[in-house]
Design a protein around this nucleic acid. Sequence first.
DNA 1: CAAGTTTTCGCCCGGTAGGCGAAAACCTGG
DNA 2: CCAGGTTTTCGCCTACCGGGCGAAAACTTG
Lengths: 207, 207
Amino acid sequence: MLWERAREPHAHRWSLPGGGLGGTEDVEASIRRQLAEKVDVTQLSHVEQLAVFSAPDRVPGPRVVATAFLGLVRSDTDPVVPSDTAWHPVDTLPATAFDHEAICRRARHRLASKLSYTNLGFALAPPEFTISALRSLYSAALGYEVSATNLQRVLSRRGLLEPTGAVAPVGPSGGRPAALFRFVSRQMRVTDPFAVLRPPSSRNLGT
Amino acid sequence: MLWERAREPHAHRWSLPGGGLGGTEDVEASIRRQLAEKVDVTQLSHVEQLAVFSAPDRVPGPRVVATAFLGLVRSDTDPVVPSDTAWHPVDTLPATAFDHEAICRRARHRLASKLSYTNLGFALAPPEFTISALRSLYSAALGYEVSATNLQRVLSRRGLLEPTGAVAPVGPSGGRPAALFRFVSRQMRVTDPFAVLRPPSSRNLGT
DNA sequence: CAAGTTTTCGCCCGGTAGGCGAAAACCTGG
DNA sequence: CCAGGTTTTCGCCTACCGGGCGAAAACTTG
């Protein structure tokens, strides 16, 4: 989500939301405040620090050090945003201000990595979804197609998915109705990645 | 590596090395400069941003926002450090100043994670080593024992290890002389973690 | 009821981690 | 020089997991 700058520097280029750090808040509280005040995004499903961007000349004028965040909203939320603000596909960004394109690339890479080796998917998916819908979400976020069969198997084996029992209404072209799933609520915070050199004689999967 | 504070605040407590950001450097250049100037650590085998610590009251007095780094030196380097500075096992830290214990815990966790799912081991190991020595390094960093057999297999299968052909001198209690290995130089930068949801029909391991 | 569409599931394959024990290769003491 | 002890190395087995494929299931429309 970017907003189009009206004034110099970098007028008419697109910029990430953000702003200065207040005296009584930490950086995470600050970015949550900025998003709530400026673009009315309050339903963040996941927020994590990305990196500090601190090149001396990253913005003209006085030195500005930025702490960049990765913030996710569920695919079924559609916050109202100001008229100068819009969503952009991360693969086809418009001309961006400052180093914001590099920040977006980093965020995209972080998202793809964490989707693969943690349970971060819950932050993108709506409360209930079909495997096909989840496959689309993962494919979009990862940047390549994944198999619905394999996605369901991997997430199920990790104990992240559970069927709701209901089925989704069928589309206009027919087909077998898809079963609805949800992420198990106990796992709705980001877990550690799968460790490959495990402690002896313990299985830390399947819990 | 911590240094003992002589003055208030938090006199006699132990503190991470660091300091203010200069006007013409970014944060990574700054921490490298601090380590080189203050404690003569110039042989960093790996440096990465850890997180920003920005609680308003994390230090008394004026607001200080810290960008914490994870910095590694190879196990065979022993930089000379000032008299007020010493190495401490991360499991038995002395009383630390400010929030530095939390920073150390985060760094330890990051190190253990990356050792498991990337090739970061090269940053800890000397140029040549036996599997037993490497096993000790990994066990110390991870906090639990790993099997030498499995460690060698996993790292070899990823194409990270290669034998030098030489063998190490035997110890005082005899035993079969251990073969020496090195990390293959082509892999001496941190690679992406192993992706578990791969693009269709491609093997992105073994390259 | 036939043809088409979409989802679901079972089956197989290969690759990978983990564990175990035998064999190899050295030492020292008798 | 051989027996016993020590450490490393290697082969074998098992369990598990990701990936692929195709058949069956369950719906639609004509």
